[in-house]
């Protein structure tokens, strides 16, 4: 049985691949993202993902909302002042000053519009894969995590298991492609298999999405972080690159300009199966307890 948590150099090897190719992944540098959504469209075009609803969500320019069975790349848009005023501790007092009141040219330069393209993290320890009862989800030779459409029976277990809320079961009428089964980013398994770049990275005009060997991407990410910090961008931080994090590091890492939750990412994701052995122990104990309890109920004399 493969490791459930902690650092792991190549999950492909762990999954039993004989000397696999280098682990592949993404480094998404949100500091150069221009929110053009070319990645979203390219992904849908290449993977023939159905339209995901024509609704105006009012969340800035984001009308996609979140990753889903029919959205494998999602660009988040966040409007915020860059330098929060000093007195922003929440004391529950509705502040009297309202935006717009002070919003004139001189304060506007403080305004930030963050954009970030989210995707499946292809976790080193992938909860979705761990809990999949059919083996439909599997670890590819590239260390990525992919659903086999022809095997998934739509049990839906991977959905609540993912600590990033990525994978979902596709809803729709019976003619909808792959309806009823789990869908998510495949890291373009078909493309990278033949040495191609994933569609989203290929389409990105600013190299915000960088595809490559995870080891090399980690270095690039660190370098980029250093540059930005030298330029005084103190809010820059890396996300998902550390092999010590709760999922053993992800195949898709990010450079963010604010806390993860601002982008809808969990601040401290943990692969749920990390605690599974302990859970099994508890379950066994409980089962035995029930057995014993029942025995007692019968032996415990009386009518």
């Amino acid at each position: 049985m493969s490791r459930l948590s902690g650092p792991l150099h190549n999950p492909a090897t762990d999954a039993g691949w004989e000397d696999p190719p280098p682990r592949k992944g993404f480094f998404t540098d949100t500091s150069v993202c221009i929110g053009c959504k070319a990645c979203e469209v390219a992904c849908k075009e290449w993977n023939d993902v159905p339209e995901d609803g024509l609704n105006l969500l009012g969340s800035s320019y984001d009308n996609t909302g979140a990753l889903s069975a029919s959205t494998w790349r999602h660009v988040a848009f966040i409007e915020q002042p860059a330098k929060p005023a000093a007195n922003t501790v929440s004391l529950g007092m509705p502040t009297t000053q309202r935006p717009g009141d002070t919003m004139d040219a001189s304060t506007l330069t403080d305004f930030r519009w963050l954009m970030s393209s989210d995707v499946c993290k292809h976790c080193t320890h992938a909860a979705c894969l761990d809990v999949c009862p059919t083996g439909s989800l599997f670890r590819t030779e590239f260390g990525t995590v992919v659903v086999q459409d022809d095997i998934c029976n739509g049990c839906g277990y991977c959905v609540p298991a993912c600590p990033f809320g990525v994978i979902d079961r596709r809803a729709g009428d019976k003619n909808t492609k792959n309806v009823g089964i789990a869908q998510k980013c495949t890291l373009c398994y078909d493309r990278i298999g033949v040495g191609e770049t994933p569609a989203c990275a290929k389409a990105c005009p600013t190299e915000s999405i960088q595809f490559g060997d995870v080891d090399e991407l980690r270095e690039r990410a660190a370098a980029r972080l250093a540059t930005l910090q030298d330029q005084g961008v103190s809010t820059a931080r890396l996300y998902g690159e550390s092999p010590d994090d709760g999922v053993g590091g992800s195949g898709a890492m990010f450079l963010l300009l604010d806390e993860p939750e601002v982008y809808g990412l969990p601040p401290d994701p943990v692969v749920t199966t990390r605690d599974l052995p302990d859970m099994w122990k508890k379950a066994a104990l409980a089962a035995l307890g029930l057995l014993a309890g029942a025995a007692a109920a019968f032996l415990g004399g009386g009518g």
């Binding site: 979203e40 339209e51 995901d52 609803g53 105006l56 309202r98 935006p99 717009g100 009141d101």
Partner: peptide, 28 residues
């Protein structure tokens, strides 16, 4: 095209919070 239309499905106007207050406009 569905892939583009879903990204910006509706005609909208962009106004500042101040103008919204002045004219009683509400988000969405």
């Amino acid at each position: 095209l569905p892939y583009l239309s879903e990204l910006q499905p509706e005609f909208f106007c962009e106004v500042s919070p101040a103008l919204a207050r002045e004219r009683g406009l509400t988000h969405l």
